[in-house]
Amino acid sequence: MEQLSHAITAKSLSFGYKNTLVLDQINMGIEAQKLTFILGPNGSGKSTFMKILAGLLTPQKGTITMLGKDASKLTYPERSKLVGFLNQQHKAMFPFLVEDVVLTGRAGFINFIPKETDKAASIQAMEKAGIMHLRHRKYTELSGGEQQMVMIARILAQNPKILLLDEPTTHLDIVNQSRLLNLLKLLVAEGLTIVAVMHDPNLAFIFGDDFLFLKDKKIIRSGETMNAWDIEFLKTIYHGKLQSIPHNGRSLLVPY
């Protein structure tokens, strides 16, 4: 039964670029229908880890299982129906309209030309992401935060079971950050599994269900006896001047 509660599992996963090892023998499971945040210092390999889960990088060792299926055996369309991925940055070369960018999320369902059902799905996705007012605008002329929301709508149009989001809140102002994170909570309540890399541990602690920390090529959890927001635990992850203040039964982290 243990395995079924996990949407993603990794077994002895190792990955490195040329001479530097980034992830070393990682074992972990991500719980289904939960909002899991991945935290850790800069350069700890969070984005690399996400790209491996998304299938954009191939691990040198180890296996990944997604909803019970061996990830290395999935075809491109099969994978796109299971997992959606938001890259940390995206640069467009052509001034596509927002609705045309969102529609490309349907590619896994489309043979050559999108049908009405695909257009309906992308309109629904834009409504959910709250960007209907941008649909006829040019993607290249939007602000960084607006572009981010367009790419999120694109994943929603894709309609996968698992969302992998690499720093979804960057470029967003504080109100839009909370709007997005509440949307993620809603999606989890509807049955999706979401894994997101976060830069800001406080936003993670306010909205998250589960927390993984990447440090020294390993994934670390706070364990049974401690919470992820306990200052003693966090000090083992982030070195530096930090103190915690209580908030809604959890704690937030403040530099001093």
Binding site: G55, S80, G84, F85, H90, T104, A107, G108, F109, R154
Partner: peptide, 23 residues
């Protein structure tokens, strides 16, 4: 002509095409 819409997907970049199911 047949691939004309795929060009839109590919124009967004390799990673963006791959994650939505295009090789």
């Amino acid at each position: 002509f047949i691939y004309r819409w795929r060009l839109n997907v590919l124009a967004l970049g390799d990673d963006e095409a791959r994650t939505v199911g295009i090789n």
